[in-house]
Amino acid sequence: MNARRTNWWAIFWVVIAFLYFFLPMYGTLDFSLRMQRGEISLLAYEIVFADPRFWQGFQYSTLMALITIVISTLIFVPTVYWMYLRVPQARPVMEIITILPFIIPAIVYVFGLIRTFSRPPFQLTLSTVTTDMLIVAGYVVISMPFMFRAIDVGMRAIDVRTLTEAAQSLGSNWFQVLAFVIVPNLRIAILSGALISFATVMGELILASFLVRPALAPYMALLGLTKAYEPAALAIISYALTWFSLGLLQLISRGGTTRQITGR
């Protein structure tokens, strides 16, 4: 065996992959710093940070992401817990339902939302508050495949039945079992689901754009039509946000697999 010999063919592909990963990153960073001719400056960033629409988009997206995380945690932790404890035969149905957002492209999904909720009897698109409720529901649906899988993986690693029976034999009610026994054991899983949901919502263009809400991605798309350097700066900011949350995710779920398959 000569397994330890350097395999140049392997090195070649890894180097190509590195280039593909980093050249566009470098290009964006370089471009974003060159707004002033002939010198490196942070001018493009200053302009972006001075734009109230950026902060509006940032605040809006962050708020929506946080609400989405809270709601999907409240939906999925009890549901997956109950599935493990009482209705394991529901698993195939749950798996099919939670993969649906991958099968139905976001653009088709928003088309369906608009057709359903922009006319009576469930007219939600009239006021901004109800539109925001609709958009949060949409975000919960879009991040459902990630959230379900994250919590599913977490739940698999703990002995749900024994923990429940132990807690109940000590006099806990259902709420106490969930809040003080199951959730603490799932904190890594919930955090992974939350982080990937956060990254998804912060970068989400389609729902916000077609429901006409002031999120970050539509602002970015709009800026891209008219400006040259500011979009590059925004892309770097967006990279930083996404990569921070997903990097954190990889750090905490090392070993565990939060396999996500697609979603744009």
Binding site: F21, L23, P24, M25, Y26, G27, T28, D30, F31, S32, I196, A199, T200, G203, E204, L205, A217, M220, A221, G224, P231, A232, L234, A235, S238, Y239, T242, W243, L246, G247, Q250, Q260, G263, R264
Partner: peptide, 22 residues
């Protein structure tokens, strides 16, 4: 690690990155 990040990276910023590069 970077595959995990890049596979989830798309949308508008990706377009800007390629405009700034190519």
């Amino acid at each position: 690690t970077f595959s995990g990040l890049a596979a989830n990276f798309g949308g508008v910023p990706l377009a800007f990155a390629f405009i700034a590069t190519l």
